[in-house]
Write a protein that binds this DNA or RNA. Structure first.
Length: 198
DNA sequence: TTCCCGATTGTA
DNA sequence: ACAATCGGGAAC
């Protein structure tokens, strides 16, 4: 019998991205547990020019083509790590980028990891989110969600459909028009970047 | 092996 | 508004 998370993760990234809003992202570190509420996501898939999986399986993108439930971590701009949740069936290259989250527990650990005390600056962007969690290596990529890595817990309260805003994705040059970014309406912890003008 | 560029962030 | 920074992927 599949639980709710498995149902989400075996679906497409486009379906999963809004459904993951409100879920708690957690990691147990030597310093203590870190928990955040996911407030902003983006969907990427195989037939999507903006997706790393668009050009097929490479060493980097191999996890994206596995069955849903893995994490996919990539390094970008020479400085930042970003965390995705792989979704879909094995053989389909899709994932949900975790773009922003609201700190819930382990805030001091995240402040330490980020070198910032401002709670609105701890995970308000994909690079910041990974840094807050202490994810700073692509060795994490391809690992399954689980207590020994990073795991998800159900939303404290389900996010209502009317409170989910869709918009174009951020920071990409291809497929700028499609509304595959999702975030919680009026949430103060979403990323601050403005969308590049078309 | 060379070259280009990026699913970003911090600073000016 | 813009530089920093370096690995991935394509091209040569």
């Amino acid at each position: 019998l599949k639980n709710e998370l498995n149902k989400i993760l075996e679906g497409s990234s486009l379906e999963a991205a809004p459904q993951l809003l409100g879920w708690t992202l957690a990691r147990e570190t030597p310093e203590g547990v870190i928990k955040l509420k996911i407030v902003e996501t983006e969907a990427y898939h195989q037939d999507d020019p903006a997706s790393h999986s668009f050009r097929g399986i490479t060493k980097r993108t191999t996890p994206m083509f596995e069955a849903g439930g893995l994490i996919y971590v990539y390094f970008t701009y020479g400085a930042h790590y970003c965390i995705n949740i792989v979704t879909g069936k094995k053989g389909t290259g899709e994932a949900v980028l975790l773009r922003a989250a609201e700190p819930l527990e382990g805030i001091e650990i995240m402040q330490q990891n980020r070198g910032s005390l401002d709670i609105y600056n701890l995970a308000s962007g994909p690079g910041k989110l990974a840094q807050a969690l202490g994810i700073k290596s692509t060795d994490w990529s391809g690992k399954p969600l689980g207590k020994s890595t990073v795991y998800l817990e159900p939303p404290a309260q389900k996010i209502k459909a009317k409170d989910i805003i869709t918009s174009p994705r951020i920071g990409i040059s291809q497929a700028k028009d499609v509304p595959w970014r999702f975030y919680i309406k009026d949430n103060n912890f979403v990323s601050k970047l403005t969308r590049r003008p078309i």
